[in-house]
Nucleic acid binder design. Sequence first.
DNA 1: TTGTATGCGTTATCAC
DNA 2: GTGATAACGCATACAA
Lengths: 325, 325
Amino acid sequence: MSGNRPATSMDVARAAGVSQATVSYVLNDRPGSRISEETRSRVRDAAERLGYVPHAGARTLRTGSSGVVLVAVPDIPQGPLATGLLEELDKELGGRGYTVVQYGARRTKGVAAAKAWAELRPTAVVADASRLTRAGIEVLRAAGVKAIIGMGHAPMDDVPSLLTDHEGVGALAVRHLVERGRDPVVAVVPREEGLREMGLARLRGARSAGVPVTAVDLAFDEAEAAAFVAGLKGGEGVFAYNDEYAMLLLAALHDAGLRVPGDVAVIGCDDLPLARLTRPRLSTVRPDLSAAPARMATLIDRLVRGTACGDVDVWTLQLIERDST
Amino acid sequence: MSGNRPATSMDVARAAGVSQATVSYVLNDRPGSRISEETRSRVRDAAERLGYVPHAGARTLRTGSSGVVLVAVPDIPQGPLATGLLEELDKELGGRGYTVVQYGARRTKGVAAAKAWAELRPTAVVADASRLTRAGIEVLRAAGVKAIIGMGHAPMDDVPSLLTDHEGVGALAVRHLVERGRDPVVAVVPREEGLREMGLARLRGARSAGVPVTAVDLAFDEAEAAAFVAGLKGGEGVFAYNDEYAMLLLAALHDAGLRVPGDVAVIGCDDLPLARLTRPRLSTVRPDLSAAPARMATLIDRLVRGTACGDVDVWTLQLIERDST
DNA sequence: TTGTATGCGTTATCAC
DNA sequence: GTGATAACGCATACAA
């Protein structure tokens, strides 16, 4: 049973006593062609009996389009936010006949990455902007990719993008702290590769709020956090980059015997489910992803069908502030 | 530039002034065929200049093998554990020439899922055991999938599997609590679909440890956790199913004014990075995934090349206990 | 209403 | 050493 080669539409045709073309007509429900109901069921029965599954590669070759939406997963660890976005996007696109595929935990970018993706001849590519370069985009375009969507920080010419306003995150967080009377404001910039860039953008935003902001380089490490906390004098407001760093700082503050928010206030970003469990509760800023999957799916569909409006779609996520109370 | 159709090996051949077969030989470094170094570089130059990228579908069609390892991502939210496993697996398999692709946040299983996967004619499939059924496996085998690996709880006949010993987790956790003199032992069983089954397995293991264990159904919800905690009398040891539930309970215990570990002891599972930040620190049980990626990659490679040893490989992850101290 | 024939891009066999 | 040529599985224009 398992030594046999996979059944082809030709096998189905033979089993049903029809031509291979008829099989294709029936299985694809080709509109316009009238095939007797009796033939149809004979074909369907045969296909079912033989366990026939169409060969995506062959279909792609013939039709010139794979229907694959390749999502290049970002290097940075996937939180529940990204996971949820992907799940919704998958649902939306699946409903429209696309096949969503996640590609590559491997850390490649630019042309090398684009070539690897292009081999699959995806119809669309959704990629973290950090993995896209101009040359890479050319490779994708040349390979027939109809829609390229960037996700991340900076917009790229010609590439519709879903952006997180990291400056806005920083600004909003600092405003939150200032409004509550915190005076020396400190912003954490993570030292990890991949996070650092976003940390600097958030820092820029933090500094745009009109109060002096001290930057602090920090690795995700308890010892480093302890050292940082030891230098605090009390009264500070700390923007911790995100909820994970905020939790790291809360632990260090606890160990140092500092009260939160009495001695030090902390605000994070992302509104992680686990971060809601800290005591005291954490304030946080969250990019609102609720409308993103539907919008992305619609955009992709439009670009693929060539019905997109002329200008490049750049969409910045709304930011939502969540107070600890 | 972008209106053109993707370059084919034929285009490269014309540009280089050679036959199309020569292009294939050069680009695939076919051993045995001697082609002049000058021709080779002419071909490579032309390919580079045209931005030629081979068409995976066409190659699959011709060679009968895609080299794709399809990983069907599980429904349950991906933690850092699973993410890390995947990243390593990707590295291992990428080095051996495979293309790792994650498929489907969509919640399908059994034959429906298998048919969707089979369309891509993957060379191997790695899937959460909960999404595999006997019939689904037949579909995959019939589609020419050479290696099928299950991940999860129960082993399946004929399917090599990477198993987590959930009974073992429960037993180890309860032993930890008992050794520290906790008398009434309580085990949390999560109410969420997809987690519940594993929770029950861990409960079985907890009960095998020789002491009475009370089961508690719990949704991941602060109000429910508060209600549960309100019923505790003090002295209990709680196995919280995993670190996330453990953190939920720690928050509820804090709110109720109960001391940990003074009044109640809590142990989780997974050794999440964020769970290391709780105060007091959490004890936890962690399945050791360090050797899993390399082993899985080797197994897949063997199965694909037909050099696997006769019997089905079932591998249960080691469990590691981490004390709060 | 159904069957025949063609080509999509590759690899691989065989003459040259 | 290199170049025609066939075949992989499918969709579709066209003939019957």
